[in-house]
Structure formats: structure tokens, C-alpha cells
Design a protein around this nucleic acid. Structure first.
Length: 228
DNA sequence: ATAGTGTGCAGTAGATGATA
DNA sequence: TATCATCTACTGCACACTAT
């Protein structure tokens, strides 16, 4: 007997889970009903059954009386539920070869400035040639929010350092990059050689989208027993 | 195997209550 | 007054059961 066999699905069905997903998206029974193609009372009845099954109010009226607010239990259900429904949709979808030339959709790519500048133009050119109806939108990866953005489908792809890849993500290494230190050509001839000691004593500017003042370079220096 | 019947579920329309 | 969630009454449909 598998783990799935052990689950008691009595009182719940796929329609209810789809309704819950839409209800959590809309936080409004009327709008959820419109999306589901049902009457508002029918969706209200589904919400009642969902509340009974989960033994939780799931959605409660907001303070301003407009719409509803998800309870912590419902909020916790949202991402795994969406993931499961997307997986099911994928499983039951008829097999269809992906034809980029005929697809019409937008892909959201979370990438840092460096990746956008170095890979963006070539990627956009290649996509435009192979799939003229696909559109690429580059956004900044949200510090600490990338995993959630990927889970919710708000970001399709991310080009980031392997250090910030969310656990469980499918990863392909695009390339390895090295750090390079460059010194102006006309520095005084008698100046000390530009070595690690010199590097550590200089003043530094750290560009940090997240605001954290401790970057990859600092981690490497720490391993060497140094700091800048 | 097919037709008839009963039951339960889920839908709708309309009414009601709460709230800003 | 407008909006929104919930309740009530009614209807239609699917399914199980039984008789032929």
C-alpha cells in the first residue's frame, strides 16, 4: 500500500480542490464563481464543504467587508495545492510536441544585471528567430523570494548564481565565471604590488540588491582567514 | 441486457443578513 | 444604498437497485 492509498479522501474531490485553488487566488467567492463558470451560491457551498473537510474557516471576511482573507492554514495550502494541480494537469494533458514556433506566451526570467547584459541580447535574438510569438520579460530575482516566485509560476526561469538556487529546483549550469581584479594602467610605479594584502586594505563598494553587506567575496576571504 | 424507479447530490434563482 | 456571503426552495441529473 502506497502513501497515497493511506490518505482518506472521503469528502473531498478534484472539483473541490480546483475551487479551493481559485478561491485562494481570488479571495472573493463571487469572482471565483465567475472564473469557475458556476453560480456564486454553488461556490459558497463548495467553500462550506472545504471548510468541513479541512476543519478550518480557510477564508474569512476581510475587515473592510470587501473580499476575504485566507487563514494561515489556507495560506499554507496554497503553494502545494497549486503545484499538485499543475502536476495533475500536466499528467492528463494529451501528449503534444512543444513547438516554439507556434506557441504564443510570455516567459518571465529572473536574472541579475550581469546575466541580462551578458546573455539577454543573444537569448532574445535566438528566441525571436525560433519562436516569434514568445515574449521574454526579465525581472530582478527577489532576495529570498525566488523559490516562492518559481513555485507560484510567477517566474518561469531564473539565471542566477548557484549559491542562490532554491533547493529542489532543476538546474542547468550555463557557464563558469571567474572574478578579475583590474588596476588602472597609470598607477605609480613604486606602488606596492596588487596582491591579496593590498586588496583587503582598500576601500570597497558592494552592490547588493538585497541590502546584505556580506557577499560571495567575503565568504571566500573568510575561508582564507581574511576580511576586507 | 434493458427499462423503470427511487435517492442523493449539486446546480440555480431569489431572499436575507451583514457591513461599509 | 451597494456589495457580498449565506440560506432556502426547487430542479435536473447521475447512479444504484430491481423487475422483466
Amino acid at each position: 500500500m502506497s502513501d497515497i492509498d493511506m490518505i482518506d479522501f472521503d469528502g473531498i474531490d478534484l472539483d473541490l480542490l480546483v475551487a479551493l485553488d481559485v478561491l485562494l487566488d481570488e479571495a472573493n467567492v463571487t469572482r471565483a464563481a465567475a472564473r469557475l463558470g458556476l453560480g456564486q451560491p454553488a461556490v459558497s457551498a463548495r467553500l462550506v464543504r472545504l471548510r468541513r473537510f479541512f476543519a478550518d474557516p480557510l477564508l474569512v471576511p476581510s475587515e473592510n467587508g470587501r473580499g476575504m482573507i485566507a487563514t494561515p492554514r489556507a495560506a499554507a495550502l496554497r503553494a502545494p495545492l497549486k503545484r499538485a494541480l499543475l502536476g495533475l494537469a500536466e499528467a492528463v494533458r494529451p501528449p503534444e510536441a512543444f513547438d516554439p514556433a507556434r506557441r504564443d506566451r510570455r516567459f518571465v526570467i529572473a536574472a541579475g544585471d550581469n546575466a541580462v547584459v551578458s546573455l539577454g541580447p543573444a537569448l532574445a535574438e535566438a528566441v525571436a528567430a525560433a519562436a516569434p510569438n514568445l515574449r521574454l520579460t526579465f525581472v530582478q530575482p527577489r532576495a529570498g523570494g525566488l523559490a516562492g516566485d518559481l513555485e507560484r509560476g510567477e517566474v518561469d526561469l531564473s539565471i542566477v548564481s548557484e549559491r542562490v538556487v532554491p533547493p529542489g529546483a532543476r538546474v542547468v549550469t550555463l557557464r563558469r565565471e571567474d572574478f578579475v581584479a583590474i588596476r588602472r594602467k597609470d598607477r605609480p610605479r613604486d606602488e606596492a604590488p596588487f596582491d591579496l594584502d593590498a586588496y583587503c586594505t582598500l576601500d570597497h563598494v558592494l552592490v547588493s540588491p538585497s541590502g546584505a553587506l556580506h557577499g560571495y567575496v567575503d565568504e571566500v576571504l573568510e575561508r582564507l582567514g581574511r576580511r576586507r
